[in-house]
Amino acid sequence: MTDQTGRRWHDMGGLSADPVDPATHDYALWEKRVDALQVLTSTKGLFTVDGLRRVLEDMGEDAFETMTYYERWTASVNQNLLEAGTYTLEELGTKMAEVSARGTTYGEASDPNA
């Protein structure tokens, strides 16, 4: 995560790496929603883009390698909202249980009337 010189994992400029993979993908609806929530909550002053990055960095290299971009953003936005006191862990846990009880797909779980 941080080597003996104080270099942190995300500070990767100049390190050797694989050839660039030019493949790309269209963003899914849930990814666009995470992006929108980040923009809206930071614009409203609940946290800064530096707060977003600080959590992403503190999540570590393993998260970078194993989670998708917007999975990591979800974790960071949530962490920042918890720190801002926007909602509590109890409220989040209760809501997540409610959401996952609605169904087994993203479409079903997104529908509060399911």
């Binding site: 941080t2 270099r7 600080r54």
Partner: peptide
């Protein structure tokens, strides 16, 4: 080399350059 959220890349620390332009004051990340 303090820990934490820093926007000065490691590969530039200790390096000498020339100011291309001043951008003005910004919030400290």
């Amino acid at each position: 080399f303090p820990p934490g959220h820093i926007r000065t890349p490691y590969y530039l620390r200790g390096k000498i350059g020339t100011v291309e332009r001043a951008l003005g004051p910004f919030g400290n990340p």
